[in-house]
């Protein structure tokens, strides 16, 4: 976890440095604001990972001498096939068409998205199948 944290912190600090130079030197604000936001985007997860990495045991994937048996057990939950990602994206498609062709497209769009939200959540509890 320490390496991941250091990558993000390093990038964040570099963006901070660039921001400081650019902000002092340049006459426009947009770029500085975006670089500052980029710095925050790296520092937030980076410092969280760093804080956490000092409080946890090294994971098997951080240990260069780990054997495969050390990683035995459940890695994570992987859902089976699911129709809800398609439904959600199909709803988003109609929402975008509403931006172009008329507000009434929001009716099928939001209906599909809300349906997918409930369907996907319920499926997440049960463990997923079509």
């Amino acid at each position: 976890m320490k390496v991941e944290a250091k990558i993000l912190l390093g990038l964040g600090l570099f963006f901070g440095l660039m921001f400081a130079v650019y902000w002092r030197w340049s006459i426009e604000d947009a770029g500085g604001v975006m670089m500052f936001a980029g710095m925050l985007l790296c520092l937030l997860p980076g410092s969280y990972y760093y804080w956490w990495s000092r409080r946890m045991k090294a994971r098997p994937e951080d240990n260069p001498y780990a054997t495969q048996t050390q990683g035995a057990g459940v890695v994570g939950a992987f859902p089976g096939s699911s129709i809800w990602p398609f439904t959600m994206a199909f709803g988003a498609f109609f929402v975008v068409l509403a931006l172009v062709f008329g507000v009434w497209f929001l009716v099928p769009g939001l209906f599909l998205m809300v349906w997918a939200m409930f369907g996907g959540t319920a499926e997440g509890r049960r463990g997923g199948k079509v």
């Binding site: 976890m1 390496v3 991941e4 990558i7 990972y49 098997p60 994937e61 951080d62 240990n63 260069p64 001498y65 780990a66 054997t67 495969q68 050390q70 990683g71 890695v75 994570g76």
Partner: peptide
Amino acid sequence: FYLRAPGMTMF
């Protein structure tokens, strides 16, 4: 960040 196999360090 989270799904590497044991021994698969970042480097």
